[in-house]
Design a protein around this nucleic acid. Structure first.
Length: 865
RNA sequence: GCGAAAGUGGCGGAAUUGGUAGACGCGCAGGAUUCAGGAUCCUGUGGGGUAACACCCGUGGGGGUUCGAUUCCCCCCUUUCGCACCA
């Protein structure tokens, strides 16, 4: 008679029900509080992976929970559909990027639907559709109008393997973020977005992001990299020129004994022209330039330089000081020239030692006297200014202000603020992206495509060879156009935009995914924005999350958006990892998921070396340690997949995959299923009204557990998204119900209570395992679908304890436990504590020094001696 | 090198404001059921110690504050992540 738990039948059934009822469709409803929960949209790579399952399960719990709490919940999904893999597939397999992408989207969509995720699919977007990317182009043109987009020739990061430019944010340790090839520099004409205009605001508003992890805020702050200091002019001797240096330590200017230039500095070669130094300088410049950026970065430590033969004047000391080229000075930061203060900067110190340049101490730390000859390292700390003309005797932080003011008065320079953040280069020499809506005319120069001619669509008839730059160059029909102004022959920009442009505003598009008059309907944008909860991987901490903030601010200044920050709360979920055993040399994986003793005999089939220890590594195709979510759903169903990923670890931490853990999650659902069906008829027969007072202490305790569970689950979801402990609490409550039911539920009173408890458990489980919860809800005889049922509330009356378990300590060690009525006072608790059997023997013969009483919890008896 | 986070049973992880360390799950052991295996159910499960208690030890290591520390402070070790000549 017992029906087995059949996840697939149940899941298919409820997915249909939800689809027919449009259970997750939303519209703007001013009568309800809105809640916008968003997970970072995926790249349509072909199949979903376990990281997606985790990300979207977390988001779905939040969405379903908030719906049950009465919020009008926007929970959309879409596709970050432009990008290189589609083009690579085209090159490798002869398919078209669009076809490949569309097929992947269709397949992954069914995969997501099988997980029972409660998206409003009517708002689905794909960034590769002209209806979407036309607004990339439109936004680009608005930026262009306001000088937020501009073109310049500059040295850019170039990935020779991907044959495209990379943004600074996309260069990781000198290598391409995607293919890990070493990145080189190339001089190219590129479009840039002026994100640096927003550097200060992007930095300042980080303080308002209290719902973001500190880690991400810190990373963004460091990335923006604000430095406050001064620019000082050092006149070049025998020339009209002056070297402009940037420093944050103008308080040490009296210790500047030389100046260092980057090899790319415009004066590097002119200073030594027609002098005996010319040859040596040229050789040095060539050598350093050719050593490549990666090498220059990694060869930290070895300072190298070359004297230019020229001198300049330190305006403060009036001294003539030499000008050097130095390998560690970067042209991209500051002015490409630095005043060198060897006594107070470690790099200058090493440089001065190597080239025997003078070292002059101008800051003395408190209670010490530094001597230049004795220094082993530069002193970079605080102190008092010495040998510093009129500033001698000032504390150095005060001196900073005074020196800066003084040099402005004298016209020797000015106060200055510098940022590490640089403008965002968005041109990409690839096909599968948004065409840049710009036309170049020999007569009229750079002409924007008129807005009513948007979108500029991608031509389909282009060859994909993987060679020779952008495929768009090959399409004559695309490339050759008329100038929108003079009608003469002109050519289109054949670059496409960085795909991070697409994802910089997609969260706004969801507010009105079909809107045809603007990127989004302003009224709807106003209703839904900002995103209340954003969920995704931490790898976007300075890429997507910074660009999206920039776009939101820029769109606000264009009068489109009305918020300055897109994401109020951010949850960065951890990676999905798996313990893997591999031969380090041959990359052989241990087969399956073997346990303890089984592992011991395993040897690499290539070299026969035994496997010693497993490593927990991120699941990835290249490491061959992935578990395919589709296999998992086929075997156990979506609810088990969801339950396991939510239960195994709190969302922000890495999750270690365990096949046994999955079994455990499945086992719990099976037990719950059997329990409900086994008692269904008995429970249906009892009076559903909850009794006010249970007749035994045991039953009253069970009722307390039920309500405590509701409270705990609510708080765990609400305050910190700790779904693992919420699920644990539900399991505990279920165990308590099972224990009671072992007696056969002979009394109606018992059955009523079990019914209350089981109903509560099923409702509480709905956000986590919506299919099985819905089915059980129906099986238990409830008419309405569970997705319409409000979140349960707990009763304070039911929570009230009748008796308290008080821990008794003697000198801080637990020696006994006593049970007292909840309403007794301190004196009686202490008396009983002292009288407790074990406690007595521990205080026997000793004088009681004091008694610490923590109400409702603990008594600590402190003895003398 | 700088910055941040973390270190708890055989494993994943609990312990929300300093108050019974190890919830929940996995694994393991014993038992029931079964021809057998699997599944299921029951019991036990930090280490030492004991016939059983008692008791002792125990949250990376060492100090400190406190009646009491996984929790707060100082020093050190390890791991992970981020930045890495930013003047």
């Amino acid at each position: 008679m017992e029906e087995r738990y059949q996840p697939h039948d149940i899941e298919t059934k409820w997915q249909h029900v939800w689809e027919e009822n449009h259970a997750s469709r939303v519209s703007e409803d001013p009568g309800k509080p809105k809640y916008y929960v968003l997970e970072m949209f995926p790249y349509p790579s072909g199949r979903i992976h376990m990281g997606h399952v985790r990300n979207y399960s977390i988001g779905d719990v939040v969405a379903r929970y908030k719906r049950m709490r009465g919020y009008n919940v926007l929970h959309p999904m879409g596709w970050d559909a432009f990008g290189l893999p589609a083009e690579n597939a085209a090159i490798e397999r002869g398919t078209h990027p669009e076809k490949w992408t569309q097929e992947n989207i269709l397949y992954m969509e069914t995969q997501l639907k099988r997980l029972g995720l409660s998206y409003d699919w009517e708002r689905e977007i794909a960034t590769c559709e002209p209806a979407y990317y036309r607004w990339n182009q439109w936004i680009f043109l608005q930026f262009y109008k306001r000088d937020l987009a501009y073109k310049k020739s500059s040295s850019v990061n170039w990935c020779p393997s991907c044959e495209t430019v990379l943004a600074n944010e996309q260069v990781i340790d000198g290598t391409c973020w995607r293919c890990e090839s070493p990145v080189s520099q190339k001089e190219l004409d590129q479009w840039f977005f002026r994100i640096t205009d927003y550097a200060e605001e992007l930095l300042r508003d980080l303080d308002s992001l209290t719902g973001w992890p500190d880690k991400v805020v810190t990373m963004q702050r460091n990335w923006i990299g604000k430095s406050v200091g001064a620019e000082i002019l050092f006149p070049v001797l025998g020339s009209e020129e002056a070297l402009r240096v940037f420093t944050t330590r103008q308080d040490t200017v009296y210790g500047a004994t030389f100046v260092s230039l980057a090899v790319e500095h415009p004066l590097a070669l002119t200073l030594c022209q027609d002098t005996p130094r010319e040859v040596a300088v040229k050789q040095f410049v060539e050598r350093i330039k050719n050593s490549g950026q990666a090498a220059r970065g990694s060869e930290e430590g070895e300072k190298e330089g070359c004297f230019t033969g020229a001198y300049c004047l330190n305006p403060f000391t009036g001294e003539k000081i030499p000008i050097y080229l130095a390998n560690f000075v970067l042209m991209e930061y500051g002015t490409g020239a630095v005043m060198a203060v060897p006594a107070h900067d470690q790099r200058d110190f090493e440089f001065a030692k190597k080239y025997r340049l003078p070292i002059r101490v101008v800051i003395q730390p408190k209670g010490e006297v530094l001597k230049a000859d004795d220094l082993a390292d530069a002193y970079v700390g605080e102190g008092v200014m010495v040998d510093s003309g009129p500033f001698t005797g000032l504390a150095n932080d005060e001196g900073k202000e005074k020196v800066a003011a003084y040099l402005e008065e004298r016209g020797w320079g000015k106060k200055a603020v510098r940022y590490r953040l640089r403008d965002w280069g968005i041109s990409r020499q690839r096909y599968w992206g948004t065409p840049i809506p710009i036309i170049y005319c020999k007569q009229c120069g750079i002409r924007p495509v008129p807005e009513d001619e948007l979108p500029v669509t991608l031509p389909r008839d282009v060859p994909f060879t993987g060679k020779g730059g952008s495929p768009l160059l090959e399409s004559k029909r695309f490339r050759e156009v008329e100038c929108p102004r003079c009608g003469g022959s002109a050519r289109r920009d054949t670059d496409t935009m960085d795909t991070f442009v697409d994802s910089s505003w997609y969260f706004l598009r969801y507010a009105s995914a079909d809107y045809a008059l603007a990127p989004f309907d302003p009224d709807k944008g106003r209703y839904w924005m900002a995103v209340d909860q954003y969920i995704g991987g931490v790898e976007h901490a300075v890429l997507h999350l910074l660009y999206a903030r920039f776009f939101t601010k820029a769109l606000r200044d264009l009068g489109l958006a009305h918020v300055g920050e897109p994401f109020l709360n951010l949850l960065t979920q951890g990676m999905v990892c798996k313990e893997t055993f591999r031969c380090p040399e041959h990359n052989w994986l241990l087969p399956g998921d073997l346990m303890g003793s089984e592992r011991e005999g395993w040897k690499c089939p290539e070299c026969k070396k035994p496997v010693e220890q497993g490593r927990v590594e991120k699941m990835s195709k290249s490491k061959k340690n992935i578990v395919d979510p589709e296999d998992l759903v086929n075997v156990y169903g979506a609810d088990t997949a969801r339950l396991f990923t939510l239960f195994a670890a709190p969302p922000e931490k890495d999750l270690e995959w365990s096949d046994q853990g999955v079994e455990g999650a499945y086992r719990f659902l099976t037990r719950l299923w059997r329990f409900a069906l086994q008692h269904r008829e008995r429970l249906a027969g009892v009076e559903s009204a909850v009794q006010k007072e249970q007749s035994t202490a045991e039953l009253r305790e069970l009722r307390r557990i039920i309500h405590r569970t509701i409270k705990k689950v609510t708080e765990d979801i609400e305050s910190r998204f700790h779904f693992n402990t919420a699920i644990a609490a539900i399991m505990e409550a279920f165990n308590a119900l099972s224990t009671l039911a072992q007696g056969g539920l002979k009394l109606d009173e018992e059955a009523v209570l079990v019914k209350e408890g089981l109903d509560a458990i099923v409702v509480l489980l709905f956000p986590f395992v919506p299919h099985v919860a819905s089915e059980l809800w129906e099986q238990l005889g409830h008419g309405e679908n569970l997705d319409r049922v409000p979140w349960p509330s707990y009763s304070l009356e039911a929570l009230a304890e009748e008796e308290l378990l008080i821990v008794v300590q003697v000198n801080g060690k637990v020696r006994g436990k006593i049970t007292v009525p909840a309403d007794v006072g301190r004196e009686r608790v202490e008396t009983e504590a002292v009288d407790a059997p074990k406690v007595k023997s521990f205080i026997h013969g000793k004088k009681i020094h004091k008694v610490v009483y923590v109400p409702r919890r603990l008594v600590n008896i402190v003895t003398e001696g």
